[in-house]
């Protein structure tokens, strides 16, 4: 079926089986490789994107539901050359090790900051439940607080 949506600000149309997880449309049809496959079962969070601003695990989101939606991936998180506050904070705190899970964490964090501009440690514990095997959680927590500061200073 033909599915039309906006992704990272641009209109896009794909012809694909409607049940195809949006993850594979994004990665293999649109060649946006920042959204990662980790488990395909909505368990690890590596494939987290935004659908109309909400954090969604794209491996468990059928492409047909994307019709008419606004999709954002890690590639569209930044505004042009300027990195998103979450990305800036991730660099300042030198969070990534292997880096594979990080786009998913950053997307989840960006969604959190829209709802909770000053997240508490408890908010972070409750909302950010992706998996990082390098276990960079300690720096991530610092980076999430720092991202909130940057974002609040900008706005």
């Amino acid at each position: 079926m033909k599915i039309s949506f906006h992704i990272n600000g641009g209109a896009q149309s794909v012809a694909v089986d409607g049940n195809t997880p949006l993850l594979w449309v994004i990665r293999d049809m649109l060649d946006l490789k920042g959204t990662k496959f980790g488990c395909g079962k909505a368990a690890c969070g590596a494939c987290t994107i935004h659908v109309d601003g909400m954090a969604v695990r794209s491996c468990s989101y059928p492409a047909k539901f994307a019709e008419g939606k606004n999709i954002t991936t890690i590639e569209g998180l930044s505004a042009g050359e300027e990195l998103h506050p979450v990305q800036q904070a991730w660099i300042e705190e030198a969070v990534p090790q292997c880096g594979y899970c990080q786009p998913g964490f950053m997307m989840a964090t960006a969604a959190l900051l829209e709802k909770a501009p000053n997240p508490t440690d408890q908010d972070i514990d409750d909302n950010i439940v992706n998996i990082c095997r390098c276990a960079t959680y300690y720096r991530m927590r610092k980076a999430i607080h720092r991202a909130a500061e940057i974002k609040n200073a900008n706005s």
């Binding site: 060649d31 946006l32 490789k33 920042g34 959204t35 990662k36 496959f37 991936t73 890690i74 590639e75 930044s78 990195l83 990305q87 991730w90 660099i91 030198a94 969070v95 990534p96 880096g99 594979y100 990080q102 786009p103 950053m106």
Partner: peptide, 21 residues
Amino acid sequence: IPRIDLHDKVAGAPIFGMDAT
């Protein structure tokens, strides 16, 4: 010194085996 791969890793650059085409 900041890691030299930080930017690629926060930008979601296609640097992993899974990303190869």
